[in-house]
Design a protein around this nucleic acid. Structure first.
Lengths: 173, 173
DNA sequence: ATGGGTGCAAAGACTTTGCAGGCTG
DNA sequence: CAGCCTGCAAAGTCTTTGCACCCAT
């Protein structure tokens, strides 16, 4: 029936890959500037992060990393993501689920999030009109905006279908 | 322009108090329906919550409550707020600071939040145009929206002034 | 008298950090 | 070969829960 399901969603919207070289350079500069060192673990974690779907949690990233080197510790992933955040390569995101998630700090494609409360699918969206309205509201209150968080929670098309089906079944449809 | 600034913000926008009777009834019904009991602590906590500024944390509410009865425990406040959330009297909010905050579930005045990253001031705002755009975006992706979280972080007018002043001083102004 | 309610303290779920030994530059 | 890094485990935060006793109903 429902075909194969995409399941994935989250990641890059197929179009073009982000400019990883730019991020590698950013990280490299930061490390040189502070006398930090390049280690096997860091390189592995960083590259794994670059390949991973956006909005990955520490746990998830650790799992990926351990497929390549099972001896890497949680703390190292944690500290490396902290490092990436500091040098502007990653953004830290806290959705309501208690986990901290990370995504590539791709300024060039600003987006917010649409999240399915049934299956957890995360879709990114952009809406310049909203951005503009935000600025106007901020100005009205005398604020200068730094960042914002705009998340919409609902049920995706797939899950609506699923729910309708089971509701129908329950009703003896 | 400018004038005196309202400063307070956060709480009821001066206009009218929310309809507390409505919320008391909601809670009462819920408790009767489930055979829950009305105790001194619950009444105290609930009324204190009603009087407290919006976006209060458990710790803060507990402090208020303890001014009236120092023997109330953290867990009771915690459980009472859970109860209020369940029966639709309060909303749970998680801003990025790791705390859970609660506000009156005043549907009639839907709003989002503008937060000063310097002083923590929280201002509520409403913008129907954004709400409408949200629905449109959700529809475009096949979603049916349930809730959303829209927070904007920046520097409020007061703090901008403060920052400018100290920056100037530092520069030998 | 029941069985929900309370306070305390212990347990969870995540995130941070201290340390002894390892490795980069 | 100094000092940053790592992995482990312990320590923090904040939120939840188990329990024995208390008290509305």
């Amino acid at each position: 029936m429902g075909g194969g399901l995409k399941a994935k969603a989250a990641h890059g919207d197929s179009t073009e890959r982000p400019d990883l070289e730019h991020f590698r350079a950013l990280l490299h500069d930061h490390m040189v500037k502070r006398g930090l060192r390049s280690t096997d673990q860091r390189r592995l974690i960083v590259e794994t992060f670059f390949e991973a779907p956006n909005h990955i949690s520490i746990e998830e990233l650790l799992a990926e990393v351990r497929q390549k080197d099972s001896r890497v510790g949680y703390a190292t992933v944690y500290r490396t993501l902290k490092l990436l955040t500091e040098c502007g390569v990653a953004f830290e995101r806290k959705f309501g689920d208690g986990l901290t998630r990370y995504e590539l700090a791709d300024e060039s494609s600003h987006h917010d999030h649409l999240i399915c409360v049934e299956c957890g699918k995360i879709i990114e969206f952009e809406e310049p009109k909203i951005e503009e309205l935000q600025e106007r509201i901020a100005a009205r209150h005398g604020f200068v905006l730094k960042t914002h968080k705009h998340e919409m929670y609902g049920t995706c098309a797939d899950c609506q279908a699923k729910l309708t089906r089971s509701a129908g079944a329950r009703r003896g449809n």
